[in-house]
Design a protein around this nucleic acid. Structure first.
Lengths: 140, 140
DNA sequence: GTACAACTTAGAGTATGCTCTAAGTCAAGC
DNA sequence: GCTTGACTTAGAGCATACTCTAAGTTGTAC
């Protein structure tokens, strides 16, 4: 059970490769995030390189916060072929805008946290005897 | 019920100001993310400017993905006074590193999505008759 | 004095996304 | 021929974080 014909992978191999658990891989298939995967004669899943590519992109969408139902919509559009290209692109562009907004917010909040860290550092320095420049007050 | 003495705010005013729902404000207090808020004679909450400042920072921590239990830990340390400064700072620095990692991942995934969008754009252009440069293949 | 709106509580319910369990099949190695 | 390990299924369970409900109190406005 090591070298399969073609480049077909077992569910465990795909789990190792993608970082998704075998549970999650079956779950994603069940809810339609990935189309029915081919089976070996014994009923075991055999993932094609295309399946793995899709899973990689799916992971990218999920880890950037696209909700499962939207990934599912995207997957459905994909199955409907080329006539859905524009709609798929629109979906991705909406998501892209969301990510860019998230990045801006995350960056701004990061600055606030860095500022607080600097403030704490100053308080600690003062507590251990040193005298320092004063950052404008930020409590808590 | 408009102008209260001092700068104390009702729960609704704080909700409007912070964007957290009144439900969430009570929930946060119940689970210890914010210490017991002062009460008016009738038992209604009266939020001080300090409470609001803490809620703002709390929001910053939560929206950057710090888990509730960790925010709670931070809140507890804060209540224990100055001797917890170093620990609080350590907590924030760990969180900061997490945010920076998230930013890197988000940025990388954004690039992949932008690339896919560009690929779709090219396919669409080709479909409507135009001939274009070929981006190296990315399916799905 | 009664309607109304804003608040109070404890605790139940919901949304999202997995994650795990139980029972069973199957092929390979000893 | 029996153990072992990887797989299969349906469906239950769990983690996180709210979000809402029901029943009750209070204070002002008419």
């Amino acid at each position: 059970m090591d070298q399969l014909t073609d480049d077909l992978l077992t569910i465990q191999q795909v789990a190792d490769k993608t970082g998704l658990s075998t549970h999650t891989l079956r779950y994603y298939e069940k809810i339609g995030l990935i189309q029915a995967v081919d089976r070996a004669d014994n009923g075991h899943r055999r993932y094609s390189p295309g399946d793995v590519g899709w899973l990689d992109f799916l992971k990218c969408l999920r880890s950037t916060g696209m909700p499962v139902r939207e990934v599912k919509r995207y997957a459905e559009l994909y199955e409907d072929g080329d006539q859905t290209l524009a709609e798929r692109r629109a979906l991705l562009e909406t998501h892209r805008a969301r990510i860019e907004a998230d990045l801006r917010e995350l960056t701004a909040n990061l600055e606030a946290i860095k500022y607080k860290i600097a403030y704490y550092r100053e308080l600690e320095a003062r507590a251990t005897g040193g005298e320092a420049e004063t950052l404008s007050a930020v409590s808590n």
